[in-house]
């Protein structure tokens, strides 16, 4: 259980607690401000600003101070956590008003127009009000689920984004090449940009025969898998694993599975 689940999960994961999706959440003024900042001010400004600020973490003296401040502030702002395919499909059940928006990371880092940013809840109304001229596509629950499944097949991992914990507003179908949260975490060590998921991948060494074309390794966006020559199988570095489950979907032998992060000593408590 991560920190968010302990506070807001009521025994479940925070994004699987139906209460966290309720309209009451929008009564929080700080939350509305956060949403308006990201939506109205412009996601391009937001990404520019946050990536500039998190760079300061690498500075010698003030870095620690900046990191502490960001760690305090981020849960009240905008951030995310990696989720597996099953969890994202399940959390979509609790949400409504699905809209597709162009992925800002792909747009700003790769100059691509991909309508894969799956938003729900108050985003539809907010987008209409704040950026009426912007592209937006309304979809049904089934279409949303299909998109999530398709992204998984293509090798895009999912993260659930919150606007002030614990209010989920979006499921990202991220491409590691473009994902700015992942870049911020990896380049500047800012864990709050994107938290690891609740699971880690485990290899069944009996089943894994290290195929000629190990898709699992090439699909891992986090560099958590490598070939173990001694065992002749794939090895997962649980400390690096984000628990997205992309490797597992690709394994032809079913040798990979997701296990709870708490049960793996090298990964437990490392979010």
């Amino acid at each position: 259980m991560c920190e968010f689940c302990e506070k807001h999960g009521q025994g479940n994961r925070w994004y699987l607690n139906p209460e966290n999706f309720s309209e009451k959440m929008m009564e929080d003024r700080q939350r509305v401000r956060t949403l308006e900042k990201v939506g109205g001010w412009g996601i391009d400004y937001y990404i520019d600003f946050t990536s500039k600020v998190t760079q300061l973490i690498n500075w010698p003296v003030i870095g620690k101070v900046v990191k502490a401040i960001i760690g305090r502030m981020a849960p009240n702002e905008h951030g995310g956590q990696v989720v597996s395919l099953e969890d994202s499909l399940q959390l979509l059940e609790y949400a409504r008003d699905f809209v597709l928006l162009p992925c800002a990371c792909r747009k700003l880092v790769g100059h691509r127009d991909d309508m894969v940013c799956l938003n729900f809840g108050p985003i539809k109304d907010m987008q209409r009000r704040l950026i009426p001229e912007g592209p937006m596509e309304e979809i049904t629950l089934e279409e949303a689920k299909e998109l999530v499944r398709m992204s998984d097949e293509r090798g895009h991992f999912h993260q659930v984004l919150y606007a002030k914990v614990p209010f989920p507003v979006c499921i990202c179908n991220c491409d590691a090449r473009y994902c700015t949260s992942l870049k911020q975490r990896r380049a500047n060590n800012v864990e709050v940009a994107i938290f690891k998921g609740h699971e880690v991948c485990a290899v069944d060494r009996e089943l894994c025969r290290f195929c000629e074309d190990p898709v699992c390794i090439s699909r891992c966006a986090f560099g958590a898998m490598h070939y173990d020559a001694e065992a002749g199988s794939v090895h997962v570095h649980a400390g690096e694993c984000f628990g997205c489950g992309l490797c597992r979907s690709a394994c032809p032998r079913g040798a990979l599975s997701l296990v709870s992060r708490d049960r793996v000593p090298s990964a437990a408590g490392r979010w």
Binding site: G42, D44, D48, K107, L108, V109, G110, R177, K183
Partner: peptide, 14 residues
Amino acid sequence: CQEACPHGVFLAVP
């Protein structure tokens, strides 16, 4: 440059 970069080094800022 953004389309060419395989590691997504470049960010477009307003």
